[in-house]
């Protein structure tokens, strides 16, 4: 799967990557995956799976999915 760590979420990746390619042998809970990557699920404000808005609760992702997560966004 392709995972986009949007906004400040790529700070949590040691290499500060905005996009991660993650091979998945089987579907996994997105929350668990984020926890493994040390991205705090509590901060997720916007989540899309294959371009559609989704909720983190119960979200399961599979190989081939394109997932984007973003934190809360304030003024710019």
């Amino acid at each position: 799967m392709q995972l986009h760590l949007g906004g400040h979420f790529n700070w949590y990746d040691p290499q500060k990557r905005a996009w991660l390619a993650i091979p998945l042998a089987a579907p996994v809970s997105l929350r668990t995956l984020l926890e493994q990557l040390h991205v705090p699920p509590a901060e997720v404000a916007i989540l899309t799976v294959n371009g559609r808005l989704a909720r983190l609760e119960g979200a399961v992702v599979s190989d081939g999915d394109r997932v984007e997560v973003y934190p809360a966004i304030g003024g710019g």
């Binding site: 949007g6 808005l53 973003y70 966004i73």
Partner: peptide
């Protein structure tokens, strides 16, 4: 850096 997140959120 805000552009893509706002777009994803509609």
């Amino acid at each position: 850096g805000l552009v893509s997140g706002l777009n994803a959120g509609g």
